[in-house]
Structure formats: C-alpha cells, structure tokens
Design a protein around this nucleic acid. Sequence first.
DNA 1: TGAACAGGTTACCAAAAGGTAAACTTCTTT
DNA 2: AAAGAAGTTTACCTTTTGGTAACCTGTTCA
Lengths: 119, 119
Amino acid sequence: MQYQQFKHCGLNVALNMLSGKWKPIILYHLFHQQEMRFTELWRIIPKVAKKVLLEHLKQMEAHELIIREEKHTFPPEVYYRLSERGKALGPALSALELWANEYAADEVTELKQRKKVTA
Amino acid sequence: MQYQQFKHCGLNVALNMLSGKWKPIILYHLFHQQEMRFTELWRIIPKVAKKVLLEHLKQMEAHELIIREEKHTFPPEVYYRLSERGKALGPALSALELWANEYAADEVTELKQRKKVTA
DNA sequence: TGAACAGGTTACCAAAAGGTAAACTTCTTT
DNA sequence: AAAGAAGTTTACCTTTTGGTAACCTGTTCA
C-alpha cells in the first residue's frame, strides 16, 4: 500500500479547521468568486442563521484561512476572500471531492436529491 | 487559480464521513497496520471511552470505510480493517496532511507539544 | 465455584454546535 | 423625525457529540 504518508497530527489540524456545518459551502463560493460580501454569502447559502455564518467566518479568519476586509463606507461593506493558506487547500479539497465522486457517488447523489426535495 | 474543481456536495459527503473526534487516529492506525482488534485500538488510543470508540467504528462501518470481522473463538476476537473505499481515501488524507505541514506547521507542532505535556 | 477476558450495552450527564428572534450602530435617504 | 441597510451582538433554546461507570455474555482456567 502506498499513500501511508500521513500522521494523525496534521490530519487532525486540517480536519479541525474544516469542521463546521457550512464551511465547505463557504470555501466553495470563495474558491469560485474571489471575494464576497457578508450579506451576499448569507443570501446565497440556503438557510444559515446570520449568527452562525458569522461564527464560521470568524473561526476561519482565526485559522487564517480567509481574510476579512472592512470598508468604512456607509452602509459598511465587509469583504471576505481566501488567504494564501486558504488557497493552498485547493488540491486537498479537490482530492476529497474526487474521492467522494469515485467512491461514494451514491451518497453524493443522495445528498443532491435531498436538497432538491427540501429546497 | 487552478484547483477549483470541487463542488460542495462531494466535499460535504467526504467531510461528514471524516467528522468525529477519533476518526483521524483510527484511520491512521488502520492505514499503518492492516487490521487491528477492538481492544488493541482501544489501548493504543490515549483516552477514548469504549462506548465512543465503538460508536465511531460503527459509523465508519456504516459508511463502508472499514470492515468488521468477528471470529467466534473464545474469548471472541473482532478485527477491523480498511475497505476499498477506505483505502481509496489515502491520497486525499495525504494531501490534507501535506497541507497541514506546509501551511499550518505552527498548529501541528503546537498540537504535538500539547500531547507531550498532557500525556 | 468463581475470577478473568473480549466485545458490547445501558443509563445518565456535560459540553459543544447550531438555530431563532430581536436589538444595536452608524450613517443615508425620504 | 422616521425608515432602511449592513454588519454585528445578545439572550435563549435544542440537538449532537463525547464522556463516566457499571453491567452483561459466554467460555476458559485456577
């Protein structure tokens, strides 16, 4: 067997930073759109509570995955975008996505259908 | 930017299957040792409660990441090993590990030190 | 007879994660 | 003066996750 080159320390650190119900979607959008405003994210993500979205963004900022930029215009505008550290996650996230589609395709399509039904 | 080839559905499925306090360690040991008995895992992982370890193993079995094999000897022996789906996670886990060591090295070493101190 | 062992269950509890709804701030627009 | 907008905070509640400790099952061995 190859691919045994992981220890659980690094893995734990990475998974901790990714754990949170809405973080995959947040990352997804930031990877595809460069930068987004708070309300834009809030509107685009199905049913997050403002408070929860904010908590997630704060955590991700604390983990230095994203960068928060506040423009002191009025009404204030706050932009979020990926940091270098965040961008560097790309390959790993692609690898997970690839695995899900190759080896857990049933669960993926199941999830998509559940979303169609409920949304 | 490259590496944008992920949607959040597959990513969600993958991260859900990996979420659980002790799953990284469990995977780590199964990747390195082929198969392990329940008690062996229980003893090797610092401070898991039997109940919790069992819950994690059951979830992973339900997700078809691992395979449970019971031998009806006495005292009974139960072996856990990776399924094909589980083994296929290797590259993605390596990628996460790699990322953690390259881009979040400080958190990784911090975690290692905390373990030394408390264990 | 009864302790010991491996794997598992039960009842019960504490902490963390996620959610709802309302209010606050600071300015602009009407 | 009143209403509105963007981002944030507060108080409160429910669900999920992780944890403790005792107990059960069958067989082997002293």
